[in-house]
Amino acid sequence: MSKHTINLTVNGKRRTLDVQSNELLIDVLRDRLYLTGTKYGCGIAECGACTVLHGDRSVMSCLVPAVAADGWEITTSEGLAKDGELTPVQESFVNLGAIQCGFCTPGMVVTSTALLRENPDPDEAYVKDYLRGNFCRCTGYVAIVQAVLDAAGKMKGAAAT
């Protein structure tokens, strides 16, 4: 197994790491950078619990070899809130009961963030379709979809003022 040196920017911090060619991004984030908000749920990109942002795009870190992430700017669930202030998406998740066990929540929040960067004015059908790759066993999704729409409304309002 060969070793490679990669450069990542994770939550605004530049990291240089030696990784094995078969090492996965999820394991680098969790086991080496201790960013355990990125969760393991299935290992085959079926559940979305390991979703992180690559720039503005959401990717499932369980399928990304760390070497392939060389040069990426990554934001994990830990990097969304600034100075302890929750983002509108995070705030709406908390206030609208979109959280139960919370294990899917970091990935769900990250995907929802990517959604709103891509489309700041989604309707219900768009949100449901966008979130179909993120699995939640607890909530039945209704409160989650409501939270994303609520966050979109708040962000639009903030942009208008």
Partner: peptide, 17 residues
């Protein structure tokens, strides 16, 4: 709003794994 919400949306909550 649930008191563990903040920790859960910021990825700070620690689960056994």
């Amino acid at each position: 709003p649930r008191s563990d919400g903040h920790a859960k949306v910021t990825g700070a909550m620690v689960y056994p794994s």
